[in-house]
Design a protein around this nucleic acid. Sequence first.
DNA 1: TTGAAAGCGCTAACAC
DNA 2: GTGTTAGCGCTTTCAA
Lengths: 338, 338
Amino acid sequence: MGRQKRPTIRDVAEKAGVSIATVSKYVNRQQSFSQAVEDKLRSAIQDLGYSQNPLARSMVTGRTTAIGLAVMDIANPHYANVVKGANRVALENGYNLLVVDMEESISAARPLLAALSPRTDGLIVSARVPQDVADWLAELDKPVAFLGQPERDDVTTVGTDSVQVASLLAQFLVRQGFSKFGYVGYSRAAWNVERLRGLREVLEPAGLELQVFDVEEPTSEAGERAAARVLLCQDRPDVIIGCNDLVAIGLMSEARALGFNVPEDIAFAGIDNIPTSRYVTPPLTTVDVCSQMTGEVVMKQMMAMIEDKPCPEGLAPEPALIIRDSTRRTVKSKQLAR
Amino acid sequence: MGRQKRPTIRDVAEKAGVSIATVSKYVNRQQSFSQAVEDKLRSAIQDLGYSQNPLARSMVTGRTTAIGLAVMDIANPHYANVVKGANRVALENGYNLLVVDMEESISAARPLLAALSPRTDGLIVSARVPQDVADWLAELDKPVAFLGQPERDDVTTVGTDSVQVASLLAQFLVRQGFSKFGYVGYSRAAWNVERLRGLREVLEPAGLELQVFDVEEPTSEAGERAAARVLLCQDRPDVIIGCNDLVAIGLMSEARALGFNVPEDIAFAGIDNIPTSRYVTPPLTTVDVCSQMTGEVVMKQMMAMIEDKPCPEGLAPEPALIIRDSTRRTVKSKQLAR
DNA sequence: TTGAAAGCGCTAACAC
DNA sequence: GTGTTAGCGCTTTCAA
């Protein structure tokens, strides 16, 4: 269906009886024209259905007016919301956001980023990548920003502090009177150690026990599969923290399927505050990591980097505890705790 | 941050002491070379960290080895899963998938697609677009496929049949003995009329009542906001069908918050079978529209179109009823129905 | 097996 | 206000 080549600037120039430079300037609104030329240009463009080829434009200007965003897993609502935020800000600034899914595979990241990079004016990468990829990104002739735990001063990184997020949650749970903690982590992610550290910083001084488990992917299905192992272990925790909401939801669901009462028999908490967490039973206690705002902030930083303006400060998203019923203390649980 | 320009083919040629044509052929593995040349090339490329600029390449070949996918709302797990499926197949075929979020705005589609199109070898659009955009897409010099209800033979469209999906659900609910139906639709989507039609085709002949409501966006939040209106209406339905799972989940959640027992007082069903539906309480009855498979199939069709091969047939995803507790008939509900 | 040269569609000096 | 021209980085004849 209609595979005719699309018209070029030359076609327009010919049809309008002007030079291609004039067409270019007209299309880019770079100056004013005589009424006659303007009319001819408008109708020629209209008739031909001409529109600029951004590739050719990029070749000469070196700009693409597109930003690339590579996410670990677009099916994770946290990342989907980061995309939302980033997209809004990009559009507001006249940029297009090109999203690429890395499918939780750091090893696949390199070729994906290599393909994405030249199509964009800047790259946002939602993970701490291996050193060789990081080096390669640093050598790039365009700004790069990371999503995640801010660490070093020489790279822009936007996200909540994983240690802080985990501590916040642990502190609350300790105050609630929980004493035997379980953490179901995802050791393949870089942030896992920090979340674990955040928990330990709170639990160890309090002399509280922490059992650590691991899932092979940070999804609800993996959480479900891990549930039996976690729940039927020697010394069952009285509260389980999932490394993210997805995992926590899977764990909690399977726990209920196995006959446990939540939160009476065992409590659950997650991290991220994905929309689903409100709708599960019981609603999941979690830490809001401001997914959408993170996307907005990282894109604002990116815009600043591109325009060589100083990076806007004070935008860092602040994690917030979201207390729901999955960690409610009940008469029964308090009695059991004795 | 190393903002040095990235090395070009000319840099490599110079360093290796060969012509740029030779470098090009080497990089594209188009022929064999003398050992000496090959060694020099390899080390030059290595040292410089050279990689092809796909933009420049596209300029001359006319190919980008990228496919564009514009989705209505990436935060909707249905679309996220379509992306997953499409991405997998694209990668298998050596293509990159570039995703763009249209934010549920058909009006914003045009500029977004115009920007995406020239960066890709083919476009997949997750919506029925307005006629002018459809015409514009048809005039494009590249294959276009749509996600949704297959309708016309002259455009590739992949998706489950919305009429069939809705009928399937209605038939089941009628068999279950429900008699007063409510449908909470999203009239701004093109598929809404078909879902409604599918319901009517089953309910009208059976002489069953159908009340229709509408949400302003197809999300759980909108579902929640609509709940009071739906539940407190004159003649309350005994089963409510959400136009998608997201809406149904919001409705059901708010119904429970308002003190209704689900499914005893009122039952709920959705459409899509997003992962969350399994985890809400009660688990949501829905129709699986094979989101991921839809993505795979549409990308396979796209690959075939690009290679000018006949489109693989018999791949159409078949919707499947997923029966869960949100529509379970109970003693109480049966009594009430009398 | 290698290289010279044309040109993809466009912009940006610069000249008129 | 308008046109001429030199490339952007690359592939692709075609000739050597």
